[in-house]
Design a protein around this nucleic acid. Structure first.
Lengths: 259, 259
DNA sequence: CGATCTTGTTTCAAATAATGAAACTTGATC
DNA sequence: GATCAAGTTTCATTATTTGAAACAAGATCG
């Protein structure tokens, strides 16, 4: 595989139809999907039929609604085993959580966004899909910036290209320039911070997990301004660094796929 | 969609190539996949290329290995939101767990097998993909038999057809006949039991979750012979029934897709 | 050092599958 | 019982997939 060509073919179109259904919160009727679809009626109809036959969609004849199929869950389970930092990081996260007692996020990069793959919180040790599997913006989260800081210029540019800088709080970066300035600081220091850039009152310290110089994920410790000041974040540098290094070592042994 | 035809088409073939990669525990080389593939070299090559472009696979140029893509995790997250009993059952499971203090499994039927979608244990409230997303046999688990008991004859026959009866323990059903005898008992009683049929020392009581008379899932409470006798299982009938009814009600409100 | 093997990638005419406008079916609503 | 909306099927046209074979790029060997 030399250059990834933009060849979509039948598979790509069928998958885009699958995404249409995925976008809904609940099972949907054919006509609802059609409204949001670029495809003619018959074409979309056959797509949904094929996807259903393949188990990627589920069709309920009683109510006439489509929903995402359970085969996806099985496939995702395989993805998890193979390509996620989560299974190889579990023990490390447990230890880190015991040490710092704060909310911990483990994230990876996915199509320019941050994908949360594992979590520890005071309320519930591990959240199911409700949390893991979620995506978030890269430019205004601790884990996102930590990874962006180690991307090569081409990849970084590509990621920022399609990024809209939404002003979540008064501290959010407004444009690519101010973000890039911070990224070089992050690379120099080795840590990234979220100073209420995503949500007011929420701050965090994060560190990228590197494999062969490339960011394969990031780990963060989150708290609130009510409980801690910015300076307090520095206390966690040491345990955070240790956890990151252990995960990096485990990833190396696993011949973990780099980006 | 009247009759689900066995039309696979390009999408089906590509997906079967995806399953080839999914079967591996770790990232794999092209040639390894080829060995297990029914497709000619060039065909498989293009499949993997397409799947990679689509984000269903991930390719690591450094090591020349393919692994399952993170897009699957996102899609599965959507499946979860829409079609799983897990999100609508979470609170009910918390309550049930508080009541009985034993390991709880919530399962659904998937292609004749049992798919565990949620879990509570003493050690860890919720396990990530490590548990949820797992599949198991239907004929020798409490949840599996609970659901099988309410399938219509055609669906049941189809599920049992491709089932190999592996003798996990001395108590495992050896053939479809003895299993069917128990299934009618289960339907009459409303509860199913696993009496060390899957693993020695592990017993459980389970109950199907019905929507319009069809099993959409099952809930089980598990313990060990060391801690409890078979008779002890009956103590949990009441809380189990209550939890099942609450989930069934929530599913109805959600216009949950029936099989 | 060149020969040989392994692994991965591209080509191209033939074979096959996807396309979508339009017709049709079904069932609900007035 | 006429009208409308939603879902399904048809079929000639069009575009994509197919896979044997040739090719490229390293490795390994004598």
């Amino acid at each position: 595989m030399n250059i990834a060509r933009d060849n979509d073919g039948t598979v790509g179109k069928a998958l885009s139809a699958l995404e249409l259904v995925a976008a809904f919160e609940r099972p949907v009727r054919f006509s609802e999907v059609l409204e949001h679809s670029p495809y003619p009626k018959a074409t979309l109809y056959r797509f949904l039929q094929t996807l259903t036959n393949q188990g990627l969609l589920q069709y309920d004849p009683d109510q006439g609604v489509y929903s995402m199929g359970m085969r996806l869950v099985r496939l995702a389970h395989a993805a998890w085993r193979q390509s996620s930092l989560a299974p190889i990081s579990r023990d490390v996260l447990d230890i880190l959580y015991a040490q710092v007692g704060q909310t911990i996020h483990l994230a990876q990069m996915d199509a320019g966004q941050v994908l949360y793959v594992e979590k520890r919180t005071a309320i519930r040790p591990v959240e199911m899909f409700s949390q893991a599997g979620k995506v978030g913006p890269a430019y205004c989260t601790g884990v996102g910036k930590a990874m962006l800081a180690y991307l090569d210029d081409v990849t970084l540019e590509a990621a920022l290209q399609k990024q809209a800088f939404y002003q979540h709080t008064q501290f959010t970066h407004a444009d690519a320039e101010s973000l890039k300035t911070e990224l070089s600081q992050i690379q120099a220091e080795g840590f990234s911070y979220d100073r209420e850039e995503h949500e007011t009152g929420i701050i965090c310290i994060a560190k990228a997990i590197l494999l062969k110089g490339r960011p394969i994920g990031a780990l963060s410790i989150t708290t609130t301004t009510a409980r801690h000041s910015f300076d307090d974040l520095n206390e966690w540098k040491q345990p955070l660094t240790q956890a990151v290094e252990q995960i990096a070592q485990a990833a190396k042994d696993w011949q973990f796929p780099t980006l």
